[in-house]
Design a binder for these strands. Structure first.
Lengths: 237, 237
DNA sequence: TTGACACAAATTGTTAACAATGCAGAACTT
DNA sequence: AAGTTCTGCATTGTTAACAATTTGTGTCAA
């Protein structure tokens, strides 16, 4: 029996449908509790969530359709391992979509939206002061989803959530030693730019921010933990 | 026995996987061969594609995750019937994403990309001259996907394809009597704006175009063929 | 005729068994 | 000892039967 690292997913006690399973894995990836290339065996997920194989397989299919999971025929499901090209695609797509979102928000945002964003940044600061690393990572990505939520557009929310999640995988793979998450005060700057009402300024700010994250990566070098090594490490600890 | 309109899907003779099934239904919806609220019974799809129920159910799940199909528990799968709110979301998302795409294309587009776009518009004109309505509809949507393809970004291509398909459903539901597809020469104008190299002009052109399509709809009125009536008509012809 | 109720048929959802594939370790050869 | 083949085990893929729900129909009563 293998004793590879178990996915860090708390067991549920309710009766979850496949969307709950998808969300749980989604969250785990976003919080970098599930590393790229982690094997997601059907049996393990069945036991973790207390459901039949069908539910698990449906959830895995949905996850694979969003690029979060790689489904390899007859070999199982693995947390996705984006290539450098895919990573670039994700960042370009984020630039395209998120700049559009903040430009529109700069033209008019509801007051409660601003409230939510500011309190979100506050939470980030708290997490940073208490050095709660998982929480920092989670909130850091969630901020961008909150921006999309201010737009109140179901399509954009879904797309941004997908892209933020994939960004987590990319950072895990290509991140350099330095702080590999969203820098400290840039989220606050984005809010300020939105509130100022200048679309161009808002666009520039978030573009700078996203590029900042991308520049913290090393997309030209090989990925961390190439397949063979990872296999060795998980096979025999 | 019901004698409702059969889905217009030619039978296949190869051994398709679920992605092929998804693509076929995708195409049928984009070409408006499958109307909203059309029931997609598992048995019918199994026979049409010559596959087992599992493949069909996986395909339907994928389609539902993209808003093309509504999966109602214990009642089956139906071609999606977007609400007016969902329709607005789709158009806002298209504005956000497609303006971003053409702005970037205006900053630099490969020559072969221009070639493809121009020959695409030519095909549209041919189809229009020969009054090939299904082909007009198909090409009209496909143009926007081709724009995304010029960007060579897998994420954006996928999202645009989804949105264009959903737009087909929306037009089918909310379209007024008039020409409910992309107007004649606006696609050519978009190409010209891109080639001119002025991002702002390109953005304005495609924004105008998308809004033009949206204005051809009647999103405030009730949808065509409200549920009850449709039920009556299909139940007893 | 209309409505309610009951039953039958059809369709979807779930489960479990089976088949097929890949993987790992043992045995064998060189 | 290194490499190769073989065999058994574990995991995934598929099928088919079964259960549950909805839907349509027919009967009956008001």
């Amino acid at each position: 029996m293998m004793n590879e690292a178990e996915p860090k997913l708390d067991t549920l006690h309710t009766d979850p449908n496949e969307q709950m399973i998808v969300d749980r894995i989604y969250s785990a990836v976003m919080e970098q509790k599930l590393a790229p290339r982690t094997k997601l065996s059907e049996l393990a997920l069945c036991e973790t969530f207390g459901v039949g194989r069908m539910r698990v397989r449906r959830a895995l299919l949905l996850l694979s359709s969003q690029g979060i999971v790689d489904l390899r025929s007859n070999r199982g499901a693995y947390v996705a391992c984006p290539s450098a090209d895919e990573a670039r695609d994700v960042f370009v797509a984020r630039l395209t979509i998120e700049t559009g979102i903040v430009r529109e928000l700069a033209r008019g945002i509801r007051d409660d939206g601003i409230q939510i964003l500011r309190s979100h940044v506050e939470k980030e600061e708290v997490a940073r002061r208490t050095d709660d690393r998982p929480e920092i990572i989670r909130l850091s990505g969630a901020f961008h989803v909150e921006l999309a939520k201010c737009h109140e557009n179901s399509v954009l929310i879904r797309v941004v959530r997908e892209l933020v999640t994939r960004t987590s995988l990319i950072v895990a793979l290509f991140g350099t030693n330095q702080a590999s998450t969203c820098p400290d005060d840039e989220h606050a700057s984005i809010i300020d730019a939105i509130v100022s009402g200048d679309p161009q300024s808002a666009e520039d700010t978030i573009r700078h921010h996203i590029l900042h994250v991308q520049n913290g990566l090393d997309l030209n070098q090989s990925q961390k933990a190439e397949p063979d090594l990872a296999k060795i490490l998980t096979g025999r600890m």
